[in-house]
């Protein structure tokens, strides 16, 4: 497809104008993000309650997460948000190559995060930091509550990230093939919003899971 035919493309049904479609896409994403905030908010509320009840256990358990993996992953994810932002804003100016580079870097950084997370999980697994097993290595027993939150929160975050990487790759493929008028549609901005949400959630998880035990 030539660039000209791309630009002649119509917005998706039911929109008649691109501006309206962009507006709808970003607005819809924002509302979805509000929904996501409630999801993680509920988990964090539970975390806050249990930390209030068992501060000592949380301190003990919090010292047993691996701060190196956590910190490096934080840096990786923050960087990926920057590359994502580059891709999103480059799309507005039609800089196809910049968009593709940005998206590629974003996906690569996301995967790097997951790989590191995998190593971290393996380490946790070897140290038996799994709630519910007979000989949980830490004391008091409420340390298991901390690790229940650790596994749930990071696990759900990883699922979100995996979906995000899939979406980034799909959009990159669409842009590469010229399947839609990506300069006009709000797709890249929507994608960026979602990606930044994953990032923001991690910014909350990092202190809750890696820093509380090291005060």
């Amino acid at each position: 497809m030539t660039p000209e035919s791309v630009h002649a493309a119509e917005p998706n049904q039911p929109f008649l104008r691109w501006s309206r479609q962009r507006e709808a896409t970003t607005f819809g994403l924002w509302i979805f993000l509000a929904s996501e905030m409630v999801f993680f908010g509920a988990l964090m509320m539970g975390y806050a309650m249990h930390r209030y009840l068992w501060p000592d256990a949380f301190e003990v358990a919090g010292a047993h997460t691996n701060i190196w993996y956590g910190s490096i992953n934080t840096a990786i994810l923050l960087t990926s948000s920057a590359t994502m932002a580059v891709a999103a804003w480059a799309a507005r100016d039609g800089l196809r190559r910049t968009v593709l580079t940005g998206l590629g870097l974003t996906a690569a950084l996301g995967m790097a995060f997951l790989v590191l997370k995998g190593f971290e999980y393996r380490e946790d697994f070897n140290e038996d930091l799994i709630p519910g097993i007979v000989a949980f290595p830490l004391d008091p027993p409420q340390t298991q509550i901390f690790f229940s939150y650790y596994w749930m929160m990071t696990g759900i975050h990883a699922v979100h990230l995996t979906i995000g990487i899939g979406a980034v790759l799909t959009v990159a493929w669409v842009v590469a093939k010229g399947r839609t008028d990506w300069t006009q549609s709000g797709t890249l901005h929507g994608l960026a919003l979602y990606w930044h949400l994953i990032d923001v959630i991690w910014i909350f998880l990092y202190p809750l899971l890696y820093l509380v035990g090291r005060g």
């Binding site: 539970g46 799994i130 709630p131």
Partner: peptide
């Protein structure tokens, strides 16, 4: 939009406790 995620979390807590023995 704002209520359903809480249900999801509640059910998730039940499911992970049943499947993996998390102790929330």
């Amino acid at each position: 939009v704002l209520g359903t995620p809480a249900l999801a979390v509640a059910l998730l807590m039940v499911v992970v406790e049943r499947l993996f023995g998390l102790g929330l």
